[in-house]
């Protein structure tokens, strides 16, 4: 379990990193926290000839308030920093609470926000949560800069719209509208494992307590984070009840997600779990939304 030979660069600035990617993009892999890439290299599943290590780029590690009142997270911010950030807890509680579900403290101390999003593992939390919260990502290259919404970013298994010379440098998570509630429900064999199934729910109530909008995004349910749009649509204009939640869960789990079978769970069991977890997530999210309504 030793990696194949590779050439190693450790740029100290984003510009330097972008210059290296402009030169070597197609042959290079970007090393962030290394919690997925390094094991894959050690197994020789990936054999990049060039490694561009971002760990010396201090300017990419930060958590700050966004102009919209949301959260801006630099690509090299460690999960552990987000986990312990009061600002993250206040502005993006769904992201904050998810941190403790990502692997275990050793991994979270190294793993980065940008690394997890760019790796685009459909079993990971951050791609799904970025999508559920309507987040977007700032991508830079020597050619320029662009913002891409999370819903347009993830293409398929481990594949995003990132060009070989591009680097994801920042994530922007907008604040939730007033009277919103959220929930993250997961089933994992052990707390630190990738979820067999997971779902993030974000719901918003209007002043009458009727659902104004909802997002349901599933983890380990397809080749990328899967947003169950029809299920979310079915909730709109409805007062939350077990019946509407059950219907939404049925639509999402039977029609919208596309889980596969592997050694840990069959697709059938995953659909069953998706159904159970959707109901639980909606129940909790609507309850939270109702509570903020009372507070407001």
């Amino acid at each position: 379990m030793k990696p194949a030979p590779f050439e190693y660069f450790a740029p100290a600035s984003t510009d330097e990193a972008l210059s290296l990617l402009a030169e070597h993009g197609y042959d290079a892999k970007v090393l962030a926290g290394g919690q997925s890439l390094i094991p894959m290299m050690n197994f020789r599943l990936v054999q990049p000839s060039i490694l561009v290590d971002l760990n010396n780029i201090a300017e990419l590690a930060y958590i700050r308030e966004g102009d919209d009142g949301g959260l801006r997270i630099g690509a090299m911010t460690r999960h552990r920093q987000v986990e312990t950030s009061p600002l993250a807890a206040e502005r993006a509680p769904l992201i904050h609470v998810a941190m403790s579900k990502i692997a275990y403290p050793q991994v979270r101390t190294r793993g980065t926000f940008g690394g997890s999003v760019s790796h685009a593992d459909p079993s990971a939390e951050l791609p799904a949560l970025s999508l559920a919260l309507g987040g977007k990502f700032r991508l830079r290259s020597q050619r320029g800069e662009r913002w891409v919404a999370a819903e347009d970013f993830f293409v398929s298994l481990f594949t995003t719209v990132l060009e070989p010379d591009e680097l994801l440098v920042e994530a922007s998570i907008p604040p939730m509208p007033p009277r919103s509630g959220w929930s993250l429900q997961e089933v994992a064999r052990r707390p630190h494992d990738f979820a067999l199934m997971g779902v993030a729910a974000v719901v918003t109530l209007n002043e009458k307590g009727v659902c104004d909008g909802a997002r349901l995004v599933f983890i380990s349910a397809g080749d990328r984070p899967i947003a169950a749009e029809r299920a979310a649509e079915s909730l709109k204009g409805q007062a939350p009840s077990s019946k509407v939640m059950e219907e939404a869960a049925e639509i999402a789990s039977m029609q919208e997600i596309d889980p596969s079978s592997d050694i840990h769970a069959t697709a059938e069991f995953r659909r069953h779990l998706a159904n159970v977890l959707t109901r639980r997530a909606l129940e909790q999210a609507f309850q939270r939304a109702a509570e903020t309504k009372q507070e407001g």
Partner: peptide, 28 residues
């Protein structure tokens, strides 16, 4: 409840790592 060696029809082990071979840890 956790540890099983999954072998396919060709006798290939499908979970030859601690990511997929679920050893009981302190959390269990």
């Amino acid at each position: 409840y956790y540890e099983k060696l999954h072998v396919d029809e060709n006798g290939q082990l499908l979970n030859a790592s601690f990511a997929d071979y679920l050893l009981v840890s302190s959390t269990e």
